[in-house]
Each structure stands twice: as structure tokens, then as C-alpha cells.
Simulated scan of single mutants.
Amino acid sequence: MDALKRLVEHPVTERAILALVVINAVTLGLETSPSVMAAYGGPLRVLDQAILAVFVAEIAARLAVRRLAFFRDPWSVFDFLIVAIALLPATGPLQVLRALRVLRVFRLITLAPSLKRVVGALIGALPGMGSIVLLLSLVIYVFAVMATHLYGPSMPDKFGSLGISIYTLFQLVTLDGWSGEIVRPAMEMHPYAWIFFITFILVTSFTVFNLFIGVVVNAMQAEHEAEQIEKTGRPPVSLDDLMQELKRLRGEVAALKGAAAERSA
């Protein structure tokens, strides 16, 4: 069992599995090409099954080494589910499950530490992002009610009902054709409509979306600090901490200079 544990946790094994994941991603992409499948379909299917067999053997080895602790690690459970989905029969009514084989590419997340940090930060940012989504929804709803009253009679295709107005304003949030398709046609009938739409774009696309960025950046910083604490047992030193330490050292140096001057006098 110790030998199996060393094999499973050896860096060479991890790099080999990572290489197989990349190769498997390439083969799954090639299988979408009819011309490639006509010429090399047989070898690609054999290679795909061989890589899947290696993945199954690796998961089985990790299960044997870690036992119940395997299922207490969310990333291990993630690996297990992806490989289990790939083992489901993909014939008859379950033919659609063949498309789910591409989920094996997501194993790159569990094998690359940098990707794990990014995903962990995104998961940690979900509560804050949920609050921002709620705020954005409220803003869109309020502006949609106003737009329906203001522009609904003259532009029923864009603001004829509350639902249509919400969809149109969501298009404005994405800045997809906001000027030529929405704002300029509205200005032909309502010359000052630009005030309404520019205000909406500034509030949503520029302000609220920057809140998204701030939440994600904070989550990334928290993930980095947690990783540093796990590795070193102490949090990383911030710029504020360095400045405080520098001020303390300056104070001590000034006190020493003062004491030296008193002695010399």
C-alpha cells in the first residue's frame, strides 16, 4: 500500500495524467470532424478508450490509498464524477451522453494548482456576486418599467412590454448594438432619449460590472492568503505591515540617536 501511495502521489504520475488529459482533449476535438473520423476513426476510438482506462485505474488507486478520505476532498469527488460519467453507456437513448465525455477536460482544473486557485476564488466570490446580480436585476427592472412607459408606445418592438424592455436593456448591458439598434432609433422619435440610455449604461456596464471585478479580485487575494497560511503557517506580509514596521524601526533609530547624543553631551 505504501508503494501504491508513493506511485499515486509521485510528481511524475501527476504530470503523466495531466499529459493524458491534454491528449484526450485533442482527440475529443478531432472526433467532431467527419473527415478525420473517416480516416483515423478506429485509432482515435482505441486511444480514447485506453486513456479512459488509465483514468479509471488512477481513480481506483486513489480510492485504495485514501479510502473514505477520498470522498472528503471535493476535488477528488469532482474527478470521480467526471470519470464515472464517461463510463456510462452511450448507445440508444443515452447517445447524448457521448457529448459529456468532453467533461474529462475539466480534470485539468484538479491537476493544475493555478487553475484550482482560480476556481476556488470564483467559488468563494459566489456570495458576493449573488448580491451584485440582485442589485443589477433591481436596476434593470426599475429602468425597464420607466422605458416601457416612456418608449413603449413609439417602439413596441423594443419596449412594448415589461418583458421586452428587460430583454432590450439586458442587450444594452452587454453593449451589443446599443447605439445603432436601440439608442439612435429611439433618438429619432425622442431626441433626449440618450440621457436615459447613457445613464443606464453608466450605472450597469461600467459601475456594477466593476463591482464584479472587485469581488473576484478580493476572492483571489483571500485564496492566495489562505494558500500562504497553509504553506508557511503565517499570512503573507502586506504593504501596510511593511510600512508600520518601517515606522517602528525609524522610531527606534531616532531613540538610539537621542540616547547617543545625551551620552556624548
Rank of each mutant, 00 (worst) to 15 (best):
V102C: 05
L211T: 01
L256T: 06
D2S: 12
T199Y: 05
P34I: 01
V102D: 03
S165G: 00
L246Q: 13
V118A: 15
R104C: 05
L162N: 00
K116D: 01
E245D: 13
L63C: 07
I23W: 09
M155K: 11
M155R: 11
N218L: 13
G214A: 09
V173M: 06
E223A: 14
D240G: 12
R15W: 12
T91S: 15
H149N: 12
W178S: 10
L88M: 10
A222E: 08
R234L: 13
R248S: 13
A64Y: 11
R117K: 12
D2G: 15
W178E: 05
M243L: 14
T168W: 04
F106Y: 12
M189V: 14
Q221V: 15
T91K: 12
Y167N: 08
I82P: 00
S137Q: 10
A25S: 14
T91F: 12
S137R: 11
F55M: 07
D73A: 07
N24G: 06
K116E: 06
A186R: 01
F106N: 05
G152W: 06
A112C: 13
D48L: 11
M187V: 13
R104E: 07
V26S: 01
P156G: 02
P236Q: 07
A90N: 08
P34M: 02
F78S: 04
K257A: 14
G130N: 09
L81H: 04
V77K: 02
P235N: 02
V8N: 11
I166C: 06
V102E: 03
D48N: 15
S264I: 14
L126F: 11
F212H: 08
I109S: 02
S161N: 12
L68A: 14
G180F: 15
D73E: 14
A3Q: 11
